Simulated assay, not measured.
Amino acid sequence: MASTTNTSTRDIAFQGLWKNNPALVQLLGLCPLLGVSSSVVNALGLGLATIAVLTSSNLLVSLFRHQVPDTIRLPVFVMIIAALTSCVELIMQAYTYELYKILGIFIPLIVTNCIILGRADAFASRNAPLPAVLDGLMMGAGFAAVLLLLGALRELIGQGTLFANMHFLLGPVAENWQITVIADYKKFLFAILPPGAFVFMGLLIALKNIADNRLEKARKAHQESTSGSKRVRVTG
Protein backbone atom coordinates (compact mmCIF):
# COMPACT_ATOMS: atom_id res chain seq x y z
CA MET A 1 0.00 0.00 0.00
CA ALA A 2 1.24 3.46 -0.80
CA SER A 3 2.64 5.52 2.04
CA THR A 4 0.60 8.21 3.68
CA THR A 5 0.94 11.63 2.11
CA ASN A 6 0.89 14.87 4.06
CA THR A 7 -1.65 17.34 2.72
CA SER A 8 -2.65 20.51 4.51
CA THR A 9 -6.25 21.05 5.56
CA ARG A 10 -6.41 24.25 3.53
CA ASP A 11 -5.17 22.53 0.39
CA ILE A 12 -7.67 19.67 0.78
CA ALA A 13 -10.53 22.15 1.14
CA PHE A 14 -9.36 24.25 -1.82
CA GLN A 15 -8.96 21.20 -4.03
CA GLY A 16 -12.46 19.89 -3.30
CA LEU A 17 -14.36 23.16 -3.38
CA TRP A 18 -12.64 24.89 -6.28
CA LYS A 19 -9.36 23.86 -7.92
CA ASN A 20 -10.20 20.17 -8.45
CA ASN A 21 -13.99 20.39 -8.06
CA PRO A 22 -15.39 16.98 -9.09
CA ALA A 23 -18.23 18.48 -11.13
CA LEU A 24 -16.62 21.53 -12.76
CA VAL A 25 -13.04 20.27 -13.25
CA GLN A 26 -13.00 16.47 -13.12
CA LEU A 27 -16.45 16.29 -14.79
CA LEU A 28 -17.40 13.25 -12.72
CA GLY A 29 -20.89 12.25 -11.62
CA LEU A 30 -22.51 14.13 -14.49
CA CYS A 31 -25.37 11.65 -14.87
CA PRO A 32 -26.97 12.36 -11.46
CA LEU A 33 -25.80 15.97 -11.58
CA LEU A 34 -27.76 16.68 -14.75
CA GLY A 35 -30.55 14.21 -14.09
CA VAL A 36 -31.92 15.49 -10.77
CA SER A 37 -30.89 19.16 -10.69
CA SER A 38 -34.26 20.48 -11.89
CA SER A 39 -35.00 22.01 -8.48
CA VAL A 40 -33.25 23.00 -5.26
CA VAL A 41 -34.86 20.27 -3.14
CA ASN A 42 -33.80 17.52 -5.56
CA ALA A 43 -30.26 18.88 -5.72
CA LEU A 44 -30.00 19.23 -1.94
CA GLY A 45 -31.32 15.72 -1.34
CA LEU A 46 -28.86 14.08 -3.69
CA GLY A 47 -26.04 16.36 -2.55
CA LEU A 48 -26.48 15.41 1.11
CA ALA A 49 -26.72 11.71 0.23
CA THR A 50 -23.51 11.93 -1.80
CA ILE A 51 -21.67 13.77 0.98
CA ALA A 52 -22.75 11.13 3.51
CA VAL A 53 -21.58 8.20 1.36
CA LEU A 54 -18.37 9.89 0.21
CA THR A 55 -17.29 10.96 3.70
CA SER A 56 -18.12 7.66 5.42
CA SER A 57 -16.60 5.54 2.64
CA ASN A 58 -13.38 7.56 2.79
CA LEU A 59 -13.25 6.99 6.54
CA LEU A 60 -13.74 3.22 6.29
CA VAL A 61 -11.31 2.83 3.39
CA SER A 62 -8.67 4.78 5.31
CA LEU A 63 -9.20 2.74 8.49
CA PHE A 64 -8.76 -0.58 6.66
CA ARG A 65 -6.17 0.56 4.11
CA HIS A 66 -3.39 -1.57 5.60
CA GLN A 67 -5.54 -4.70 5.90
CA VAL A 68 -6.78 -4.82 2.29
CA PRO A 69 -4.39 -6.38 -0.29
CA ASP A 70 -3.88 -4.52 -3.54
CA THR A 71 -5.24 -7.45 -5.53
CA ILE A 72 -8.76 -7.05 -4.11
CA ARG A 73 -8.63 -3.35 -3.31
CA LEU A 74 -11.26 -2.11 -5.77
CA PRO A 75 -13.87 -4.85 -5.11
CA VAL A 76 -13.61 -4.17 -1.38
CA PHE A 77 -14.05 -0.43 -1.97
CA VAL A 78 -17.13 -1.07 -4.10
CA MET A 79 -18.63 -3.30 -1.40
CA ILE A 80 -18.07 -0.61 1.25
CA ILE A 81 -19.65 2.06 -0.96
CA ALA A 82 -22.58 -0.21 -1.83
CA ALA A 83 -23.29 -0.98 1.84
CA LEU A 84 -23.21 2.70 2.78
CA THR A 85 -25.40 3.64 -0.18
CA SER A 86 -27.96 1.04 0.89
CA CYS A 87 -28.01 2.56 4.38
CA VAL A 88 -28.57 6.06 2.97
CA GLU A 89 -31.27 4.75 0.63
CA LEU A 90 -33.14 3.08 3.50
CA ILE A 91 -32.91 6.21 5.64
CA MET A 92 -34.30 8.36 2.82
CA GLN A 93 -37.04 5.81 2.14
CA ALA A 94 -38.03 5.95 5.81
CA TYR A 95 -37.85 9.71 6.47
CA THR A 96 -38.07 11.49 3.09
CA TYR A 97 -40.20 9.12 1.07
CA GLU A 98 -41.66 11.72 -1.33
CA LEU A 99 -38.19 12.94 -2.27
CA TYR A 100 -36.94 9.35 -2.43
CA LYS A 101 -39.58 8.59 -5.07
CA ILE A 102 -38.60 11.66 -7.10
CA LEU A 103 -34.88 10.89 -7.05
CA GLY A 104 -35.61 7.28 -7.96
CA ILE A 105 -32.74 5.32 -9.48
CA PHE A 106 -30.20 8.07 -8.83
CA ILE A 107 -29.92 7.13 -5.13
CA PRO A 108 -28.73 3.52 -5.67
CA LEU A 109 -26.59 4.79 -8.57
CA ILE A 110 -24.41 6.56 -5.99
CA VAL A 111 -22.57 3.22 -5.87
CA THR A 112 -21.32 3.79 -9.43
CA ASN A 113 -20.48 7.46 -8.94
CA CYS A 114 -16.88 7.84 -10.12
CA ILE A 115 -16.22 10.59 -7.56
CA ILE A 116 -16.68 8.23 -4.62
CA LEU A 117 -14.66 5.31 -5.93
CA GLY A 118 -12.03 7.68 -7.29
CA ARG A 119 -11.48 9.42 -3.94
CA ALA A 120 -11.42 6.09 -2.11
CA ASP A 121 -8.66 4.79 -4.39
CA ALA A 122 -6.70 7.99 -5.01
CA PHE A 123 -6.81 9.57 -1.55
CA ALA A 124 -8.44 7.61 1.28
CA SER A 125 -6.40 4.45 0.65
CA ARG A 126 -3.19 6.49 0.94
CA ASN A 127 -3.97 8.78 3.87
CA ALA A 128 -4.86 8.72 7.57
CA PRO A 129 -8.54 8.82 8.61
CA LEU A 130 -8.76 12.54 9.44
CA PRO A 131 -7.44 13.84 6.09
CA ALA A 132 -9.52 11.17 4.32
CA VAL A 133 -12.71 12.33 6.04
CA LEU A 134 -11.91 15.96 5.24
CA ASP A 135 -11.23 15.09 1.60
CA GLY A 136 -14.55 13.24 1.34
CA LEU A 137 -16.39 16.12 2.99
CA MET A 138 -14.82 18.78 0.76
CA MET A 139 -15.20 16.82 -2.48
CA GLY A 140 -18.80 16.05 -1.55
CA ALA A 141 -19.45 19.68 -0.64
CA GLY A 142 -17.95 20.84 -3.94
CA PHE A 143 -20.19 18.44 -5.85
CA ALA A 144 -23.25 19.44 -3.78
CA ALA A 145 -22.56 23.15 -4.27
CA VAL A 146 -22.61 22.76 -8.05
CA LEU A 147 -25.76 20.64 -7.74
CA LEU A 148 -27.46 23.36 -5.68
CA LEU A 149 -26.40 26.17 -8.00
CA LEU A 150 -27.58 24.24 -11.04
CA GLY A 151 -30.84 23.32 -9.31
CA ALA A 152 -31.50 26.92 -8.28
CA LEU A 153 -30.84 28.22 -11.80
CA ARG A 154 -33.06 25.63 -13.45
CA GLU A 155 -35.88 26.02 -10.94
CA LEU A 156 -35.78 29.82 -11.13
CA ILE A 157 -35.67 30.06 -14.92
CA GLY A 158 -37.85 27.02 -15.53
CA GLN A 159 -40.59 27.61 -12.96
CA GLY A 160 -40.06 31.09 -11.54
CA THR A 161 -39.72 29.77 -7.98
CA LEU A 162 -37.06 28.86 -5.43
CA PHE A 163 -37.15 26.28 -2.61
CA ALA A 164 -40.36 24.65 -3.82
CA ASN A 165 -41.33 21.41 -2.04
CA MET A 166 -38.58 21.72 0.54
CA HIS A 167 -40.83 19.88 3.01
CA PHE A 168 -40.11 16.71 1.01
CA LEU A 169 -36.64 16.81 2.58
CA LEU A 170 -36.93 18.89 5.75
CA GLY A 171 -40.45 18.08 6.85
CA PRO A 172 -43.36 20.33 7.91
CA VAL A 173 -41.04 23.11 9.09
CA ALA A 174 -40.20 23.87 5.43
CA GLU A 175 -43.73 23.83 4.01
CA ASN A 176 -43.81 27.61 3.56
CA TRP A 177 -40.27 28.08 2.32
CA GLN A 178 -41.21 28.44 -1.35
CA ILE A 179 -40.30 31.81 -2.84
CA THR A 180 -42.30 32.83 -5.90
CA VAL A 181 -39.87 35.09 -7.72
CA ILE A 182 -42.09 35.71 -10.75
CA ALA A 183 -45.87 35.61 -10.24
CA ASP A 184 -47.98 34.00 -12.99
CA TYR A 185 -44.79 32.76 -14.63
CA LYS A 186 -45.23 30.66 -17.75
CA LYS A 187 -42.83 27.81 -17.32
CA PHE A 188 -39.73 27.70 -19.52
CA LEU A 189 -39.70 23.98 -20.27
CA PHE A 190 -36.21 23.97 -21.82
CA ALA A 191 -34.62 24.85 -18.45
CA ILE A 192 -36.33 21.96 -16.70
CA LEU A 193 -35.53 19.31 -19.34
CA PRO A 194 -32.09 17.61 -19.70
CA PRO A 195 -30.92 19.85 -22.60
CA GLY A 196 -31.27 22.84 -20.30
CA ALA A 197 -29.12 21.08 -17.72
CA PHE A 198 -26.33 20.64 -20.28
CA VAL A 199 -26.48 24.31 -21.28
CA PHE A 200 -26.43 25.63 -17.72
CA MET A 201 -23.65 23.23 -16.78
CA GLY A 202 -21.58 24.47 -19.73
CA LEU A 203 -22.13 28.06 -18.59
CA LEU A 204 -20.97 27.25 -15.06
CA ILE A 205 -17.82 25.56 -16.37
CA ALA A 206 -17.14 28.56 -18.63
CA LEU A 207 -17.58 31.00 -15.72
CA LYS A 208 -15.16 29.00 -13.59
CA ASN A 209 -12.58 28.97 -16.38
CA ILE A 210 -12.93 32.75 -16.81
CA ALA A 211 -12.49 33.27 -13.06
CA ASP A 212 -9.43 30.99 -13.00
CA ASN A 213 -7.84 32.84 -15.93
CA ARG A 214 -8.36 36.22 -14.29
CA LEU A 215 -7.01 35.01 -10.97
CA GLU A 216 -3.95 33.58 -12.71
CA LYS A 217 -3.30 36.86 -14.55
CA ALA A 218 -3.66 38.81 -11.30
CA ARG A 219 -1.25 36.41 -9.57
CA LYS A 220 1.36 36.77 -12.32
CA ALA A 221 1.00 40.56 -12.32
CA HIS A 222 1.50 40.62 -8.56
CA GLN A 223 4.59 38.41 -8.84
CA GLU A 224 6.06 40.64 -11.57
CA SER A 225 5.45 43.81 -9.56
CA THR A 226 6.95 42.21 -6.45
CA SER A 227 10.06 41.01 -8.28
CA GLY A 228 10.40 44.41 -9.95
CA SER A 229 10.31 46.15 -6.58
CA LYS A 230 12.98 43.79 -5.25
CA ARG A 231 15.25 44.52 -8.23
CA VAL A 232 14.84 48.26 -7.70
CA ARG A 233 15.80 47.94 -4.03
CA VAL A 234 18.85 45.82 -4.91
CA THR A 235 20.15 48.17 -7.61
CA GLY A 236 19.41 51.18 -5.41
Rank of each mutant, 00 (worst) to 15 (best):
L170T: 02
L170W: 03
G171C: 10
V173R: 14
V173P: 04
V173F: 15
A174H: 03
A174S: 10
N176V: 08
N176G: 13
N176D: 14
W177L: 15
W177T: 08
Q178I: 09
Q178L: 11
I179R: 05
I179N: 06
V181A: 10
I182G: 00
A183W: 02
A183P: 03
A183D: 08
A183Q: 12
D184Y: 00
Y185D: 01
Y185V: 01
K186Y: 14
K186S: 14
K187S: 14
K187C: 12
F188C: 13
F188D: 09
L189F: 13
F190R: 11
F190P: 05
A191P: 02
A191V: 06
A191F: 05
A191K: 02
I192N: 02
I192T: 12
I192K: 03
P194I: 05
P194A: 07
P194H: 06
P194M: 06
P194R: 06
P194G: 07
P195D: 04
G196I: 00
G196R: 00
G196A: 05
A197P: 00
A197G: 05
F198H: 13
V199G: 09
F200C: 10
M201P: 00
M201H: 04
M201Q: 03
G202L: 13
G202Y: 07
G202R: 08
G202K: 08
G202T: 10
L203N: 09
L204Y: 01
I205S: 02
I205K: 01
A206Y: 11
L207F: 15
L207G: 12
K208G: 01
K208Q: 07
N209A: 15
N209Y: 13
N209R: 13
I210S: 06
I210Q: 07
I210A: 08
I210L: 12
A211I: 11
D212Y: 05
D212S: 06
N213A: 13
N213T: 09
N213L: 10
N213E: 11
R214D: 10
L215C: 09
L215R: 12
L215T: 08
E216T: 11
E216M: 09
K217E: 09
K217D: 09
R219A: 15
K220S: 07
A221C: 06
H222P: 00
H222R: 03
H222W: 03
E224T: 08
S225Q: 13
S225R: 10
S225W: 07
S225N: 10
T226P: 00
T226A: 07
G228I: 00
G228W: 00
K230L: 10
K230T: 07
